[in-house]
Design a protein around this nucleic acid. Structure first.
Length: 454
RNA sequence: GCCCCGUUCGUCUAGCGGCCUAGGACGCUGGCUUCUCAUGCCAGUAGCACGGGUUCAAAUCCCGUACGGGGUACCA
């Protein structure tokens, strides 16, 4: 049996990390088994779907390196779903219902559900354009519907807890459950891999599948949710989680993808950071955890730093240059080796190089005092100034001039000079970048700092 | 309320009855390397939610409790 899996986003928002993880696990399973990975846009909610978001979702998947083999859009297939529903209607598996939502709520009480009011009322098929009539699927009153979930084991629902749910809106547009069941059947989906928030839709889809004549439903694997620090499902509103946000902040797709894999799954040999090919070799749906996982950006940052340091110089320069701001490319290339081992995200770059390509930042008061409030600092700066006037303008000579001054005076000289020239007490190695600056600029910065000491 | 589910270091995970005085990773702490910071390397820190069973033996199996989560739409 050839594996066929699908990632089925609704285009109602940007692709967020939870959905990305679902897509990733589907993709991994397809690639692992030599199966087919399908992208199916579930845009049956015509009010909420935003066509322009489809492109964003596709781009985010591409960014993550998740390539798909087939693509469908449910809005292209409404006719087929409706034809299937006609079959249900003819066979008495579904019926028209003209109850308003407020009527239903009044009868059923505050809690949700439907009381089957129209089951046998023989509500007529509405004439075109008439509002207020939906199609409901007739669910069994007894028995249980269950399945063996690849992640969670046996899950069962009492059919009595399932109300006759709506499958076609009064607008005539089919709803999620039918579209989902029809497509999984029609497309020969063998495994449904998605978030745990969808478990309770399975019995409905299973019933629909049966009504459709499917003899063998797909296997289901429900992934544990990715949660925020409050242990709640990641939400687009509360949490800053769209994949695009991460590309903007300078994360590498490989790092993001690798980190996402560790949420709910772990390789048996304890190696977390590894090439995607090795992950594909080892991945299996049966090994996925049941418990929710917290999306820890600190660990993501660590992964990203590791991936940044794995890059060769050319790749690093090409990838990070757009984040570096207004810099000459050749100059940036010379600084890049020092930058590369110091950052975990590309958006940290500007702060590291601003003293070289522009002006140093205004020093932090505490840092300034910590470095400069020493009796020997004025003497040190004076001597450094004197030696720098005459020094050959290249890194080794600059180091000798500055560090030598310290030795002569028996004082620390690197930190005060760093503070004077870069405006900070930490950062890139001092002398190589300093040699990129003009002598007059460096001398002026040191004199200015020296002036503040009197 | 009703339905479904989860629980191994602060966090992510390995573990699927003996190899576990529970392993790895992030974080944190300390050390070495070093022009600062960072990288790299080394060391340390901290956990099987609780209570009953089953078994010669339980983190691993069963039951209960507690806590947590998901769902409960003419969203998906």
């Amino acid at each position: 049996m050839t594996v066929r899996v699908r990632f089925s986003p609704a285009p109602t928002g940007y692709l967020h990390v939870g959905s990305a993880r679902s897509a990733l696990f589907n993709w991994l399973y397809a690639r692992r088994t030599g199966g087919t990975f399908i992208l199916r846009i579930e845009d049956t909610d015509t009010d909420r779907s935003r066509p322009e978001l489809i492109d964003n979702i596709r781009r985010s998947l591409e960014w993550l390196g998740l390539d798909w083999d087939e693509e469908y859009r449910q809005s292209d297939r409404f006719d087929q779903y409706l034809a299937a529903v006609d079959g249900f209607l003819e066979r008495g598996q579904a019926y028209y219902c003209d109850c308003s939502q407020t009527d239903v709520r009044a009868r059923v009480g505050g809690s949700a559900g439907y009381d089957g009011h129209c089951r046998d009322r023989q509500v007529a098929k509405p004439a075109d354009g008439s509002a207020g009539v939906v199609v409901r699927f007739r669910t069994p009153d007894e028995g249980v519907t269950g399945w063996d979930d690849l992640v969670r084991g046996r899950v069962e629902f009492e059919n009595s807890t399932l109300e006759d749910f709506v499958i076609v809106r009064s607008s005539g547009v089919p709803m999620f459950h039918v579209a989902n069941a029809y497509d999984d059947f029609d497309m020969g989906i063998t495994h449904v891999v998605r978030g745990e928030d969808l478990v309770n839709t399975v019995p409905r889809v299973l019933l629909l599948l049966e009504a459709l004549g499917a003899t063998e439903p797909p296997r289901y694997a429900h992934l544990p949710l990715i949660v925020n620090e409050q242990r709640k499902k990641l939400s687009k509103r509360r949490d800053d989680v769209s994949v695009g946000d991460y590309t903007d902040r300078g994360y590498l797709p490989e790092a993001m993808r690798n980190y996402l894999v560790t949420l709910g799954w772990g390789a048996k040999d304890d190696i977390e950071i590894r090439p995607i090919s090795e992950i594909i070799e080892r991945f299996d749906l049966a090994d996925i955890n049941k418990a929710p996982a917290y999306f820890d950006t600190r660990k993501l940052d660590h992964f990203n730093g590791e991936y940044i340091r794995m890059l060769d110089l050319d790749s690093f320069v090409t990838a990070s240059l757009p984040f570096a701001g207004d810099v000459d490319e050749e100059l940036y290339r010379r600084l890049a080796p020092f930058v590369q081992e110091r950052i975990r995200r590309y958006d940290e770059i500007p702060a590291l190089i601003e003293w070289i390509v522009a002006e140093p930042p205004e020093p932090d008061d505490k840092d300034w005092r910590k470095v400069m409030d020493r009796d020997d600092v004025p003497k040190v700066l004076d001597l450094v100034l004197e030696r720098l006037e005459a020094a050959e303008w290249e890194p080794d000579a600059l180091a000798e001039a500055v560090l030598g001054a310290g030795e002569v005076l028996g004082a620390k000289s690197q930190l005060p000079v760093r503070m004077a020239v870069t405006g900070r007490r930490s950062g890139l190695p001092l002398f190589e970048p300093m040699a990129e600056l003009d002598r007059v600029v460096v001398l002026e910065r040191i004199r200015k700092a020296r002036g503040r000491l009197d």
